[in-house]
Measured scan of single mutants.
Amino acid sequence: MEVRTIKVFTTVDNINLHTQVVDMSMTYGQQFGPTYLDGADVTKIKPHNSHEGKTFYVLPNDDTLRVEAFEYYHTTDPSFLGRYMSALNHTKKWKYPQVNGLTSIKWADNNCYLATALLTLQQIELKFNPPALQDAYYRARAGEAANFCALILAYCNKTVGELGDVRETMSYLFQHANLDSCKRVLNVVCKTCGQQQTTLKGVEAVMYMGTLSYEQFKKGVQIPCTCGKQATKYLVQQESPFVMMSAPPAQYELKHGTFTCASEYTGNYQCGHYKHITSKETLYCIDGALLTKSSEYKGPITDVFYKENSYTTTIK
């Protein structure tokens, strides 16, 4: 009895394709271990004539594949690729409408935090270190965002349907971005203890939790000093293409032309909904596939993004 075979390709990165001759009487799992086709788990399936010449994702289970996976995804987590594939199996079914010149995501599976993050990423200057993220990001900007969303979920250790947080998501993504040249110098002034300067680099240099107003941050924000008295913390120097200011959701007025974009969060910790506000020729609110415009805006804002380049204080 002759062994019926077909020729397929296996890959971990969709760049390096490895030619395989597979036995049609055995499952993919018996031949390769966990195997995925377009995100779908085909591990328990036997090869079919229609699979001839198709590319299958496999887990990096030998040295060659491990090197290829690390170079593309910059992670050695053995569960990463499987999590990416199972997320992709959902995100490829989502709709990605162009809204006001940006790629958004039609609401499904509690994905409003991903839509808000995706919209924000198209408006701030950011370059990702893992080629996987950078490639998928370019495709997302062009309207094909399924891979990018699935990668975000995998890097953030999230599953489809789980509630997510924009600030946490951005923080994970910033860790995989090139923020080497970003720098922030802060000064804390206390009447009792004097003053202390701190220099922050990388992710810490672009994120701040405690106030939404970048102007206020430049002037000074009140913080408790270690001595128990009130101290003032203010920005001395900022070198970065953008800054992200966050605070627990509270009524906040966004003035046209003073910011790049913002995240609105309605609801409580267990259950809520994100919308995205962007400042173009007027203010726009993007909620999944829905767009509304207004000249002014007041609502429960939790993150505001500002364009920056270089700032030095005039406070002496």
Rank of each mutant, 00 (worst) to 15 (best):
E2F: 11
E2I: 09
R4N: 13
R4S: 13
I6K: 06
I6S: 09
K7V: 11
K7L: 10
V8H: 00
V12D: 13
V12K: 13
N16T: 08
N16R: 07
L17N: 14
L17M: 14
L17I: 08
T19R: 12
T19D: 08
Q20I: 06
Q20G: 09
V21M: 13
V22D: 00
V22A: 15
D23A: 04
D23N: 15
M24Y: 11
S25F: 09
M26Y: 13
Y28V: 01
Y28S: 00
Q30P: 01
Q31G: 05
Q31F: 15
L37G: 05
D38G: 11
G39I: 03
G39N: 06
G39Q: 06
A40R: 14
A40V: 12
A40M: 13
V42R: 03
K44G: 15
K44M: 09
I45K: 11
I45M: 11
I45L: 13
I45D: 13
I45Y: 11
P47C: 02
P47F: 02
P47Q: 00
H48G: 10
N49F: 09
N49A: 15
S50I: 12
H51S: 02
E52L: 10
E52C: 10
K54W: 13
T55Y: 06
Y57N: 07
Y57P: 01
P60T: 07
P60Q: 04
N61F: 06
N61K: 12
D62E: 11
D62V: 09
D62R: 06
T64R: 12
T64P: 13
L65N: 09
L65K: 11
L65G: 08
R66K: 09
V67Q: 13
V67F: 12
E68N: 15
E68F: 07
Y73T: 01
H74C: 04
T76Y: 09
T76A: 14
D77C: 04
D77F: 01
D77M: 03
D77P: 00
P78C: 04
P78T: 10
P78Y: 07
P78D: 12
F80V: 04
F80K: 02
G82T: 14
G82E: 09
Y84Q: 03
Y84F: 12
Y84E: 00
M85A: 03
S86N: 12
S86I: 12
A87P: 03
A87M: 12
N89K: 12
H90Q: 14
H90P: 00
H90A: 11
K92W: 04
W94T: 00
K95Q: 08
K95V: 14
K95M: 11
K95G: 07
Q98F: 09
Q98L: 09
V99N: 02
G101Q: 06
L102E: 02
L102K: 05
L102S: 07
L102F: 08
S104N: 00
I105W: 01
I105H: 07
W107R: 11
W107K: 13
W107E: 14
W107H: 15
A108P: 05
A108F: 05
N110K: 08
N111Y: 00
C112N: 07
C112T: 09
A117I: 15
L118M: 10
L118S: 00
L118Q: 03
L118E: 02
L119F: 01
T120N: 08
T120G: 09
L121A: 07
Q122G: 02
Q122K: 02
I124L: 10
I124T: 05
E125K: 09
E125I: 00
L126D: 02
L126R: 01
L126C: 11
L126Y: 00
K127A: 12
K127F: 09
K127C: 09
K127V: 09
F128H: 02
F128T: 02
F128A: 00
N129K: 07
P130D: 01
A132E: 01
Q134T: 08
D135T: 11
D135L: 08
D135C: 07
D135A: 10
A136N: 09
A136D: 00
Y137C: 05
Y137H: 07
Y137T: 01
Y138H: 14
R139I: 07
A140E: 04
A140Q: 00
R141S: 09
R141N: 06
R141C: 13
G143K: 02
G143M: 03
E144Y: 11
A146L: 00
A146Q: 07
A146E: 05
N147C: 07
A150T: 01
L151I: 01
I152M: 13
L153F: 04
A154V: 03
A154C: 05
C156D: 01
C156K: 01
N157I: 01
N157P: 00
V160W: 04
G161N: 07
R167S: 08
E168D: 09
E168V: 02
T169A: 11
S171P: 00
Y172D: 14
L173N: 00
L173H: 01
L173R: 02
F174S: 03
Q175H: 15
A177V: 09
A177Y: 01
N178V: 07
N178H: 11
L179M: 06
L179Y: 05
S181A: 08
S181V: 06
S181C: 13
C182F: 07
C182L: 03
C182N: 04
C182Y: 05
R184K: 07
V185C: 05
L186Y: 12
L186I: 15
N187K: 10
V188F: 09
V189C: 15
C190P: 02
K191R: 14
K191S: 12
T192W: 10
C193S: 03
C193D: 04
G194D: 06
G194Q: 07
Q196C: 13
Q197I: 15
Q197P: 07
Q197C: 08
Q197Y: 09
T198M: 14
T198E: 11
L200T: 12
K201T: 13
K201S: 14
E204N: 06
A205Q: 02
M207T: 08
Y208Q: 14
Y208W: 11
M209S: 11
M209A: 05
M209H: 15
T211H: 10
L212C: 12
S213Y: 01
S213D: 15
Y214D: 14
Y214G: 03
E215K: 06
G220D: 04
V221T: 07
V221W: 09
Q222R: 13
I223P: 05
P224Q: 11
C225P: 03
C227Q: 02
G228L: 02
G228Q: 04
K229V: 04
K229L: 11
K229T: 05
K229C: 11
K229M: 12
Q230E: 12
Q230F: 11
A231W: 02
K233H: 10
Y234R: 12
L235I: 14
L235T: 03
V236P: 03
Q238I: 02
Q238C: 02
E239G: 03
E239Y: 09
S240T: 02
P241Q: 10
F242I: 06
V243L: 08
M244Q: 10
M245K: 04
M245F: 07
S246V: 02
S246I: 01
A247L: 04
A247D: 06
A247N: 10
A250S: 15
Q251D: 04
E253H: 12
E253M: 08
E253V: 10
E253L: 10
L254I: 07
L254E: 08
L254H: 07
H256I: 15
H256T: 14
H256C: 11
H256P: 15
G257K: 05
G257R: 01
G257Y: 00
F259A: 05
C261M: 04
C261V: 05
S263T: 10
S263V: 15
E264G: 15
Y265W: 12
Y265E: 05
G267D: 13
G267K: 13
N268K: 12
Y269L: 13
Q270M: 14
C271A: 14
G272V: 09
H273N: 06
H273V: 05
H273S: 04
K275R: 15
K275L: 01
H276C: 05
I277T: 04
S279N: 08
K280F: 11
E281W: 00
T282V: 13
L283E: 04
C285Y: 08
I286K: 05
D287V: 00
G288Q: 01
G288S: 03
G288N: 14
L291T: 14
L291A: 14
T292E: 08
K293Y: 08
K293T: 12
S294W: 13
S294Q: 15
S295M: 14
Y297T: 03
P300E: 15
T302N: 04
D303V: 09
D303F: 00
V304Q: 07
V304H: 04
F305P: 02
K307V: 11
K307D: 10
E308N: 08
E308P: 05
N309I: 10
N309K: 15
N309W: 10
S310L: 10
S310T: 01
Y311T: 06
T312K: 13
T313P: 08
T313E: 10
T313F: 08
I315K: 13
